[in-house]
Design a protein around this nucleic acid. Structure first.
Length: 576
DNA sequence: GCCGTTTTCGGCCCGACTGTTTTCAGTCG
């Protein structure tokens, strides 16, 4: 079982236990396990094999035994017994906005409702309103929630979230009395996909702003409106949460709204140990004085912590590191000196090599690798090996024209065929300055088979970089099911670089795998895979993955000095 | 269920908003 599959099981257990009304702290232990598994990077099976599961924070004896049972049998007796007590079809009702575990249990026990269809029918027939704690309004809210559930799409890409966020922030900054408006939530943490948009403002009298916000013409439904917090659903299904506090409390508000939830819990626990209580309004001391602070740095500092970059706020040890002043110095966009994965009109790119080179110069890059596709049948207009010398001649011509402004490398993005063979013969690969290998076809072969293909590419001495390793497409098309332990081992053995593909549709490798790979000393490269100059602007999204992985610039080969990179390539047997 | 610079037992983050309630439970982030 993959980490994600294991995480799904623990999430399921947590939700069933909530409906069963188990102790919330037990439930949280299972929820936390699900979160931890998703961001582990290393395979749980590898950890289990060396008996190290309980070394993971939050995983103790009981849960590690459950993981081991799942890994060895694919089943879990504990879950099977739980599902006999609590029908698993109830879980779909939890997806309805405004319906939580208590209501699900109520509907099930009082009315025998088992699924969404039952709920829809009971609500339409007016059977919910007479239940204890329910009324006509709650019944209507459930009908509205069912309707919006049917219409809503899931999570969106970071690109769309950034664009929507920028649009709404611009609107907010024009509203009277708004002293500051900023993104928060998973958008600010640069999570690979974003569910709802979270925005915060500094404002002294926010009631009128909240009124204007909920009355905005794009709003289809107001989910809640108060003095300090409102929540709406737009006509296209997007949800936005807006929080407001006076400017002197902005620091606490921004931390709160940025999350993650687990990070906030960790920080608040720390505050408690220091005799303080942290909320979105500020720090409450033991005497009941509210200490308001306009900046996040001040709140963190009051707790003895360095300011924590939002990308790290996932409760993966960042609070402990901040207390020891040992946070990594994260790579930033300004550190990037090269684009090592790009396309031109020689394959499916939109512009010529010269135009791409000028675009790279305009972005301050010192190196551009032209890495057009090989010719495998799945790739539109890919290059045949016999085309490579002519392309080399054009690259050299452009190089002469541009002189020392940039170093152009001839590379290729060579497809790994369905049978695992590379698309070019070794002689062709040896003549290139840099070789990228990647999977495009047959991504959903069985794990052993698709992993073997990737391993074959990694073992080829001419291959320098493995690009977008899983081939996934965000927000929801899964990529290859890789045996990551084997992939990491091979990358480390051969010194092959792992790409973070910066396209917001890919962000592949993801933060968890990147973090683990870098920890093993595997070189990381962040590339946009640009097919046109504009594509190079997506570099920031790739950098965000590296930051979420906790990487400093040294781990990322395209932050290196030019000589260091060419030296690395030469040592790998390339022509550069 | 997990965990330990107070603890191997007894804790475990905090507040806004809503709808049902005459003081609070449920949901959400």
């Amino acid at each position: 079982m993959t980490n994600n599959e294991l995480a799904d099981v623990f999430e399921r257990i947590a939700n069933l236990m909530k409906i069963k009304d188990e102790l919330v702290f037990k439930v949280r232990a299972y929820e936390r396990t699900a979160e931890t598994l998703r961001s582990l990077g290393e395979e749980a099976s590898a950890l289990a094999a060396r008996g190290a599961l309980t070394s993971v924070p939050g995983i103790g004896k009981a849960i590690s035994e459950k993981i081991e049972e799942l890994l060895s049998t694919g089943k879990l007796g504990f879950l099977q017994r739980l599902e006999e007590e609590v029908p698993p079809s109830l879980l779909e009702m939890l997806k309805v906005p405004g319906v939580g575990p208590k209501k699900v249990a109520l509907f099930w026990k009082e009315l025998g409702l088992l699924n969404l269809a039952d709920l829809q029918q009971a609500a339409a027939e007016g059977k919910l309103r007479s239940l204890p704690g329910m009324g006509e309004k709650s019944e209507a809210a459930i009908l509205a929630g069912l309707a919006s559930l049917a219409q809503r799409s899931g999570r969106m890409t970071l690109l769309r979230a950034s664009e929507e966020g920028a649009r709404w922030l611009a609107w907010l900054r024009k509203q009277p009395g708004v002293e500051r408006a900023e993104p928060a939530g998973s958008l600010r943490r640069w999570k690979e996909t974003v569910g709802d948009l979270d925005l915060v403002v500094a404002h002294r009298e926010p009631a009128a702003l909240m009124q204007a916000f909920t009355a905005h013409p794009d709003v289809a439904r107001v989910l809640g409106q108060g003095e300090n917090k409102s929540s709406v659903e737009l006509k296209d299904g997007l949800r936005i949460q807006l929080w407001a506090q006076p400017p002197e409390s902005f620091g606490a508000l921004w931390i709160y709204a940025t999350g993650s939830k687990d990070h906030n819990v960790r920080v608040r626990e720390l505050a408690q140990r220091k005799g303080l209580s942290l909320s979105e309004r500020g720090l409450l001391d033991a005497q009941g004085n509210l200490l308001r602070m306009p900046e996040e740095e001040q709140i963190y500092a009051a707790l003895g912590l360095d300011w924590i970059p939002p990308e790290l706020r996932e409760d993966r040890g960042e609070v402990e590191a901040a207390a020891k002043h040992a946070l990594p110095r994260l790579v930033s966009l300004g550190d990037i000196r090269m684009e090592l994965h790009s396309h031109s009109t020689w394959s499916d790119g939109a512009v010529t090599i010269e135009e791409m080179a000028r675009a790279a110069i305009a972005r301050g890059y010192k190196v551009l690798a032209v890495t057009d596709h090989s010719h495998y049948m799945g790739i539109v207009n890919g290059m045949r090996p016999e085309d490579l010398p002519r392309q080399r001649a054009e690259i050299e011509e452009v190089q002469r024209k541009l002189g020392g402004q940039i170093l152009l490398l001839q590379g290729a993005e060579v497809d790994i065929r369905s049978d695992g063979a590379l698309d070019y013969p070794d002689e062709a690969l040896a003549a290139l300055d840099v070789v990228i290998a990647s999977l495009h076809m047959s991504l959903h072969q069985p794990r052993e088979q698709v992993t073997a293909r990737l391993l074959n590419a990694i073992r080829n001495p001419h291959v320098d970089i493995i690009a977008h390793p899983t081939g996934r497409l965000l927000p929801d098309r899964a990529g290859a099911d890789l045996d990551w332990s084997a992939v990491f081992a091979a990358l480390a053995e051969h010194g092959t670089a792992l790409e973070i593909n910066a396209s917001p549709m890919r962000l592949d490798a993801d933060d968890a795998h990147t973090r683990h790979a870098a920890g093993l000393g595997i070189p990381i490269t962040i590339n946009t895979d640009a097919h046109a100059p504009r594509g190079m602007d997506e570099m920031i999204y790739g950098v965000s993955v590296a930051r979420r992985a906790g990487l400093s610039a040294e781990c990322v080969i395209n932050t290196w000095e030019v000589e260091k990179l060419t030296g690395w390539l030469k040592k790998r047997g390339s022509r550069a």
